[in-house]
Design a protein around this nucleic acid. Sequence first.
DNA 1: CTGAAAGCGCTTACAG
DNA 2: CTGAAAGCGCTTACAG
Lengths: 353, 353
Amino acid sequence: MPRGSKKTGVSKPAAKADFNGKRPTINDIARLTGVSKKTVSRVINESPLVHQETREKVKLIIAKYGFTPDPMARGLASRKSFLVGMIYDNPSPQYIIDLQRGILDALATTGLQLVLRPADRAHPEFLTEMRSFVERQKLFGAVLPPSISEDERLAALLRELECPYVRIASVSLDEPGVMLVTNDHIGGREAAQHLADLGHKTIGHISGPLSFRSAHERRRGFIQELSGRGIDVPAKYIAEGSYTFESGYACATRLLALKPRPTAIFAGNDEMAAGVYRAARDANVELPRDLSVVGYDDSALSTRVWPTMTTVHVPIRSVGSMAASRLVRPTTHHSTEVVPNLVVRASTAPPLG
Amino acid sequence: MPRGSKKTGVSKPAAKADFNGKRPTINDIARLTGVSKKTVSRVINESPLVHQETREKVKLIIAKYGFTPDPMARGLASRKSFLVGMIYDNPSPQYIIDLQRGILDALATTGLQLVLRPADRAHPEFLTEMRSFVERQKLFGAVLPPSISEDERLAALLRELECPYVRIASVSLDEPGVMLVTNDHIGGREAAQHLADLGHKTIGHISGPLSFRSAHERRRGFIQELSGRGIDVPAKYIAEGSYTFESGYACATRLLALKPRPTAIFAGNDEMAAGVYRAARDANVELPRDLSVVGYDDSALSTRVWPTMTTVHVPIRSVGSMAASRLVRPTTHHSTEVVPNLVVRASTAPPLG
DNA sequence: CTGAAAGCGCTTACAG
DNA sequence: CTGAAAGCGCTTACAG
């Protein structure tokens, strides 16, 4: 439970004493309580080394005057800021927003702030810039979503700088304590199960760029599951896209020209699946009668297109919240795994004939 | 942890002098240059009161050792942080992301960081929380997108706390120096011109919630332009949505049941326009043959749906960048106005017969 | 369990 | 144009 929420009814400062027209400082609280500022500091930082009675006296005065410690002063003295950095290169707006929301959920009552740091792994100055950012801001912690989470150089840098971090990825790449695993192969497997259960035999797949671990994992889960059910996916029924609408369109156009034409396509994300819709329309292929389509992400887009899209849901907001919670409370136990699940909508049906 | 063992990145500074294993401070630079730290401080802060020769000597040493001042120390001493807050309540992910990108563009080379602050104007503690946030973080500045930009209490609070801010809104609500006006009535006008030029006479409109200034302005521009061309829009052809897909669907369902049925609908944003698509499908109304649809925002969605959507483009990323630039360089001249423009795609056509 | 001293790395306010 | 002193509001390191 959040720390700040268990105040005993006192939400607003009762007293409005003027401390030279400014907010009270730790010195004011110390003087008013009749203790040293070090003791007030201990109360602020929840040190157990304070007599219960003293603690309560201090807390009372703190609440009475609405004191909150200055983050910059604390940061300067303790050599650690109250900023959590989100370092990202994921181009999907929906993913970024959902993750931000989750992180903000978890930080809401902590006094920690979320700072955004887009980055480009391919840039020659990437590591230099990250070093200077993390070092300069003395980051409290960092959240690393894919695909930047897959960069071992960045993880090593963060360890060197002793900056706590959480890596979000489709498979475990690090110690369990710093990983949040989204198990994308399970999402791929569920897509396969669904299409196989519907009776599809001729199935295509458009993966994301295989340099992304997620693309690899989704494909692996999908192909393995089909294979386990005796359904083979020939190499030419597998295309590699780039997680964009345009790449989905281009790949689907090729797959739909194959003989026999696939009766179902699993796309590595919703954007590419929307590209499949467009290609199907161009080829006069009707969804879901002539072609079933499954996406991945369960983005807003999946319910805006027609027919509404069967897709794999990933609770990104929860992932963000889980990641930030770890940074906030590193000692308590945290779950490491997230499991995606299929959401069946109107873009999938049994094959014709 | 192994301290000075193995470095991962290549550090930029030529010299690698070890200052007790830490980064150099202003004192190190002062000592090495043979000046006082106050002079170094003046160089950092680009004070003109430094002899040209002295300045260059200092800059040389700074570059040589890769010195960058500590933001928390500067902040503590100057009572102002290096954080720019984006305070928002806009529920559209695409808008938020684009605005963030623009702000980050402008902050990239400044050393300022972007911190995110979602807020709820309707919450009883809204102002109290904003006060404590701005005061506590000693914000360098704040960017306020709609609809929170329309809150006069927040603007007054920011003025009281002497926190520089930029308000982004569809009309001017404040002194020009702190406004960025998106002229939404012009967008509405362009939508009207386009539909009128195509020959439509029976036209519907689904506005956003009229408590939003943008909704009001888009509607005003639209209706006025039509009226100027002798096209009247009866009250029952105007519906008020809430900028959501579902509200667009519900409103369109009502409008499409009217006799005579409108041959065109202008929706206050793309999400609602997508709802119109869905309602049209349900009613067996074909786009654009039986119904023309115009959206607003030019979001990614507008090119994913079929037929691709005619919509009004607003350069949100530029808006973000312009807003942040103002905070960074308050003295130089900045443009205050942004003009939306219509993007014609496949969802609009002349009316039948 | 509590506190006096020193200091984090800068800027302000003043003096020359 | 330049600098010595004081201080921003906290925590660390030490002592008792």
